[in-house]
Nucleic acid binder design. Structure first.
Length: 266
DNA sequence: ATTGTGGCCTGCCCGC
DNA sequence: TGCGGGCAGGCCACAA
């Protein structure tokens, strides 16, 4: 299998955020919205132009997988990347190829662009159109960011839930930033089954999960993508646990394809 | 309320 | 060689 990137989970969006910092403090001259489907939350091109043209982005924040570009006086712009979205500034992409996206760039996949007074651009490219752009995103719909979540916040996110642990971790309203690949990696590292009822973890298991979640996020940001976890190369038919060699189990958990080690993830 | 399911989107890959 | 059916998963609407 080729060494590709992965879907835009927290590590990818963090690299997009860093790239977006190079687009700050540059005056927006025009907005290109070729795909009305890509505009979310009831905004249209006219509203976006009124909000952004003549203004500048002044900060690039990330909450979970959501990129928020704050403007000088107007409402912030929210960008979601779905599973194949990439960010480009001045023609350069933030990270390498995405696992489930084409390896090339085609301008027809540019779903949204801002052009600056200096001639540069900020472009959202998304072949499968699962991402989107919105104004003034409601951040209260997102749980604590998994890069900085505290142990007690994680405990609160899981407490009392009978949903599968993995499904709860994927719920962006509970914990923001965990996607399918990173969920498998974190649970594998923590030695916890994705099928465990979320509220059934002991205090020790909670500590273990929290430690591995925060460390994994940091680790994968450093490595450069959610596809660079230790489990990922085995996350395919015939794959074996890198820790103990047991054949990995594949099934659907929380509506997502899941791979885990039946020997040490309990 | 919580939890589960299906659909959206479309390029790519596999088998015929 | 072309074709068609699955597949991938973030997010949302909807059902029970």
């Amino acid at each position: 299998m080729a060494t590709l990137g992965s879907v835009p989970e927290l590590p990818e969006v963090e690299s997009y955020r860093r790239l977006a910092e190079s687009a700050l403090f540059r005056t927006v001259r025009s907005i290109v919205t070729p795909d009305a489907w890509f505009l979310k939350g009831g905004v249209d091109g006219k509203v976006l132009r009124r909000a952004l043209i003549g203004h500048r982005f002044v900060s690039a924040r990330r909450i979970g997988k959501l990129l928020v570009l704050e403007t000088d006086g107007g409402p912030p712009l929210g960008i979601r990347f779905g599973m194949t979205g990439t960010l480009m500034v001045d023609g350069a992409a933030a990270v390498g190829e995405l696992r489930y996206a084409p390896r090339r760039h085609d301008p027809k996949w540019d779903r949204w662009s801002a052009r600056f007074d200096d001639g540069g651009t900020l472009v959202v490219s998304d072949p499968r159109r699962l991402g989107g752009v919105l104004l003034d995103p409601d951040l209260s719909l997102l749980g604590p960011d998994s890069a900085t979540i505290t142990g007690s916040q994680l405990a609160a996110a899981l407490r009392g839930s009978r949903a599968p642990l993995k499904a709860r971790l994927l719920d962006q309203a509970r914990v923001a930033g965990v996607g399918n690949l990173m969920a498998d990696e974190v649970l594998w590292r923590a030695g916890l089954s994705p099928l465990r009822p979320a509220g059934s973890l002991s205090a020790n298991e909670l500590r273990r999960l929290h430690r591995n979640l925060v460390r994994t996020v940091e680790d994968l940001i450093d490595r450069g993508g959610s596809h660079l976890g230790d489990l990922m190369v085995e996350r395919q038919p015939g794959g074996r646990c890198p820790r103990d060699g047991a054949p990995l189990t594949r099934s659907t958990v929380g509506g997502r394809t899941s791979w885990w080690c039946p020997r040490h993830q309990v």
